[in-house]
């Protein structure tokens, strides 16, 4: 950040100004980071409190080593004072125990199963379609590209009702298959893969073709293994998007609580109206987020790269 200083006085003024600006900028960053982190910390802390403590003393965030149960032997709820002391609180796992006794374990399985199934199908279908659009001359190639691009403009809300009707007619409403097939390919993934395949030099394929390999062999044996970065991005987006998918689950699986995914299940755990069971809801939120958080911290680099990928794509 060298600058041209014409006089020493203006130079020192400017460097002072620059320092003040830098301090303000870092303050802005730290402030924003606190705003982003604090709610997460408070959510985790309060998921280990009984309802009374959550609603009266939500702020204490440092757990003490001794735990409590929310009801004593006679079934009476303990007061907030018995659990909370300054910034410290005695954790309770009652919220977690209660939701694990609900259908939540089933929902965890459903969410994992649906996310993995959709992601695998997308990896196959999107990369095949992306490769065809990038490399293979077939009638309608260009037109299909614009159709795929155009489908990205269709808002999900418009699809709610007709998808519901269509699946109902097909007898796939409230089934795993119904959810999976609707989401088995997506325009974004196809375009991502197309763009990636276009960046691979043609010579690679031409060399293989001289050796007599056909397109299928070339694609599955040679091109696809080279596409690991794009496939990783696709995996992350597909898995994350479906792990967190609420709207499609609500419409397609909403009729059968055994098939719910976690976001849909959470809205049921909430209870009705304004009487929210915070211990359940917060514990459920933590459990829903935990697997994604673990994946995020392990594959952080790919998340960021994947996001950047979408940005560059425009």
């Amino acid at each position: 950040m060298a600058s041209l200083a014409f006089t020493s006085q203006s130079h020192s003024m400017r460097s002072l100004l620059r320092r003040v600006l830098a301090v303000m900028a870092v303050g802005f960053l730290v402030g924003f980071a606190l705003i982003q982190i604090t709610p997460c910390v408070l959510t985790i802390a309060n998921s280990f409190k009984c309802d009374a403590a959550v609603e009266n003393r939500p702020m204490p965030f440092i757990p003490l080593p001794e735990t409590v149960t929310c009801r004593d032997e006679t079934g009476v709820f303990i007061s907030a004072d018995e659990q909370v002391d300054g910034f410290f609180f005695r954790p309770s796992v009652d919220g977690y125990r209660k939701i694990l006794e609900s259908q939540l374990p089933r929902w965890v399985f459903n969410t994992a199963f649906l996310s993995i199934a959709v992601t695998i199908l997308r990896l196959v279908f999107d990369s095949m379609a992306g490769y065809a659009l990038a490399r293979l001359k077939f009638p309608g190639n260009r037109a299909l590209f614009f159709v795929v691009l155009g489908t990205m403009m269709i808002p999900g809300v418009v699809l709610l009702i007709p998808r519901f009707l269509l699946l109902k007619q097909l007898g796939l409403l409230n089934t795993y298959q119904g959810y999976i097939i609707v989401l088995a390919a997506d325009a974004f993934g196809i375009l991502l893969m197309k763009q990636f395949f276009e960046s691979i030099p043609r010579e690679v394929e031409e060399a293989a073709m001289v050796d007599g390999a056909n397109r299928y062999v070339i694609f599955f044996r040679i091109v696809l293994p080279m596409a690991t970065p794009a496939l990783t991005a696709l995996t992350i987006f597909g898995f994350q998007g479906n792990w967190n998918n609420f709207m499609d689950a609500l419409i397609i699986l909403g009729g059968d609580t055994d098939l719910y995914n976690l976001p849909l299940g959470l809205t049921v755990l909430r209870g009705s109206g304004l009487d929210v069971q915070y211990d359940l809801v917060l514990a459920g939120s933590v459990i829903t987020t935990l697997p994604m958080a673990v994946i995020f911290f392990i594959f952080q680099r790919y998340f960021v790269e994947g996001i950047s990928y979408t940005g560059l794509k425009g």
């Binding site: 196959v124 279908f125 999107d126 095949m128 379609a129 490769y131 065809a132 659009l133 293979l136 001359k137 077939f138 009638p139 190639n141 299909l144 159709v147 795929v148 489908t151 269709i154 418009v158 699809l159 009702i161 007709p162 998808r163 009707l165 269509l166 097939i181 609707v182 989401l183 088995a184 390919a185 325009a187 196809i190 056909n214 397109r215 299928y216 694609f219």
Partner: peptide, 27 residues
């Protein structure tokens, strides 16, 4: 290539047509 291309796009194209484009028209 044309044959391979069509068979490669078919699964994704069918899914997009049946569950994205058709629903828009149905709506």
């Amino acid at each position: 290539d044309a044959f391979a291309g069509l068979s490669f796009v078919a699964p994704a194209a069918i899914v997009l047509f049946v569950f994205l484009i058709l629903p828009l028209l149905v709506a």
